[in-house]
């Protein structure tokens, strides 16, 4: 084996340090006894206890999760329909325009999306009285708007790599187009739909800017609460909250990795089996 060069190795360490030192220091300070976030006052887990006493944060977290779940589900439904239309309707007039318009929210600055949605909601309320005031509903609608664009892109790219003859075969075997969609297309693109759902869920959970524009009194999402608290000074309970979030996310990523590795192993075994008999 070739000896590792010291230079490459130190560059690697530097890179990882750059990425992870902030995160580790955050985790470290979440166990700080002191009220001041930057002064070490001994080990303690009291901020975790306090966090679960703080109704403001718990409510915000629950609201965020609820909005994220509804957003992800709706975005998958609408995004899948858009993706199917883009990938399967063939060439029709205005296809390029439509495709571009679906993708637009991906590149639009969040501030503009947020502002335009706010204006829409305000004028809608004046005209038809719905949505009455701004709150969880308007945040959900706003989140669906930009999440479905991501889902549409994922679904479309999955469909374009799918063998068209699968759908033709189902049709050839006597299934009407709707049955073909249900029996063949949807099961095959279901992994893409799952990843679209997860992505929308994360995007919605993560969003601060758009939510700030379209939220109303009494409906603050978790990022909004964190942001407003931090503006008054970083407190250790926020560090504790962040640590929990990091823990949840890294467990999720690790689990996904293990699952994918297992699946790959099984696929290899299956292939060997196919050619051994």
């Amino acid at each position: 084996m070739r000896r590792r060069s010291t230079f490459t190795f130190s560059m690697l360490c530097f890179g990882f340090a750059f990425l992870y030192i902030p995160i580790f220091s955050l985790i470290f300070y979440s166990f700080n006894k002191s009220r001041l976030a930057t002064v070490w006052g001994g080990f303690s887990t009291k901020w975790y206890g306090e966090l679960f006493q703080n109704e403001l944060i718990i409510d915000a977290a629950l609201l965020s999760l609820r909005i994220a779940a509804v957003t992800a589900t709706m975005a998958v439904i609408l995004g899948t329909m858009a993706g199917l239309a883009l990938a399967r309707l063939g060439r029709y007039r205005g296809r390029t325009l439509f495709a571009g318009m679906v993708m637009a929210p991906l590149v639009m600055p969040e501030v503009i999306t947020g502002l335009s949605l706010l204006l829409l909601f305000v004028s809608l309320e004046e005209m038809i009285g719905w949505p009455a005031g701004r709150g969880a509903t308007t945040i959900t609608i706003a989140h669906i708007t930009f999440s479905m664009a991501y889902v549409a892109v994922i679904i479309q790219s999955r469909l374009s790599s799918m063998d068209d003859s699968l759908e033709e075969a189902a049709m050839d075997l006597g299934s009407r187009p709707f049955r073909v969609l249900w029996d063949v297309t949807l099961p095959i693109i279901s992994p893409a739909m799952v990843s679209g759902w997860l992505l929308s869920f994360t995007l919605s959970l993560d969003d601060l800017v758009i939510a700030s524009f379209v939220s109303g009194p009494g409906s603050s999402t978790l990022p909004m609460v964190i942001f407003s608290k931090v503006r008054l000074g970083v407190t250790p309970d926020i560090n504790a909250l962040a640590t929990i979030i990091i823990l949840v996310v890294s467990t999720g990523v690790l689990l996904a990795g293990i699952l994918m590795h297992r699946q790959e192993q099984r696929r290899l075994r299956d292939e060997q089996m196919a050619y051994s008999d």
Binding site: D163, E168, D172, V184, P187, I188
Partner: peptide
């Protein structure tokens, strides 16, 4: 009429 496709088009699931 039924067709046998070049790619076989077997439903993978």
């Amino acid at each position: 009429v039924n067709m046998m496709f070049q790619s076989y088009a077997l439903f993978p699931h």
